[in-house]
Simulated scan of single mutants.
Amino acid sequence: MTDRPPTPADRALLDAAEHGDLAALRTALAAGANVEARDDEGRTPLLRAAFADRVAAAALLVGAGADVNAQDRQLNSPWLVTGITGSVPMMRALLPGGPDLTRRNRYGGVSVIPAAERGHVAYVRAVLGETDIDVNHVNDLGWTALLEAVLLGDGGPAHREIVEVLLAHGADPRLPDADGATARTLAERRGFHDLAALLRQAEEHPPSS
């Protein structure tokens, strides 16, 4: 991460990216703006576009060589942010930039984990179907996407569907959290009886290794 102060053209690029102003983006780039310029929080133009879900602006920046893996001071990157926002169009706009699917956020997680927690069904389905992201990645808290979907979800239709999608893509229901509790155990504790039954069945027929 560079500490070089942004130039006026850099600032214009950062603002244009956040607002999705394509004309201003092109003008700033033509004026020599640094596509990897940083604001006070260490966010690049592409990261600001990702947070604001400015898909066309992001696509333009990716085409100009912007780094989809550049992380800010809180370890957010454009790619990792898609797991927070759940934006499938943004996810797809960033794919040509070659996202590092193993890059971790400040909790040690990959993008599918916050998406599972937040109930972003379409994103979980898309990122598992269109990339090789590790469905069984364990973050620094000891949680996989499956564990977070149960532990931090609400047990409703969206989180149930996410559990089904995760299992269909090879999520291992036998993987426990740091305290030794599996997703089924967590579902039982939270009173998610339908989820617990689904996970019990998955434990009896786990994914082949």
Rank of each mutant, 00 (worst) to 15 (best):
T131L: 07
R38E: 10
D140R: 13
I84R: 12
L128I: 03
L46G: 11
T85C: 05
R92E: 15
L61Y: 13
A181N: 14
A58R: 08
D72Q: 10
V35Y: 04
T27G: 07
D67K: 00
L95N: 11
L167E: 02
G142F: 14
A33N: 06
A16P: 08
A158K: 15
L25W: 05
L147T: 07
R48M: 10
R11G: 07
A171C: 05
L151P: 01
L101I: 09
N139A: 13
A50S: 15
A64D: 02
A30V: 02
V127I: 12
G20V: 14
M91Q: 14
R125L: 03
V62Y: 10
R160Q: 15
L80P: 00
N139I: 11
S87H: 06
P5C: 09
I84F: 14
A181H: 11
L198T: 09
A93I: 13
L146M: 05
A12P: 00
A59P: 07
H169A: 03
G170R: 03
H205C: 01
Q71I: 04
P96I: 14
V55R: 01
D132N: 02
G155D: 12
P6M: 12
T144N: 09
Y123K: 06
A196F: 13
N76R: 06
P206A: 08
N139V: 10
L22F: 03
V138W: 11
M90K: 10
V112G: 03
R4L: 10
T185A: 13
M91P: 06
L94Y: 11
R160F: 11
A197V: 01
A158R: 15
V127L: 02
L195W: 07
A9T: 08
G129E: 02
S111T: 04
S87C: 06
A145T: 14
A70I: 08
G98T: 08
V112K: 06
N34H: 08
V135N: 06
G42A: 14
T182V: 07
L151D: 11
R38G: 01
L101R: 08
R48A: 11
P96F: 11
I84C: 06
A37F: 07
D15I: 12
A24L: 12
V135M: 07
A197M: 00
N76D: 06
P8V: 05
P89R: 08
T27E: 14
E117T: 11
A145P: 13
L47Y: 11
R92S: 13
F51G: 02
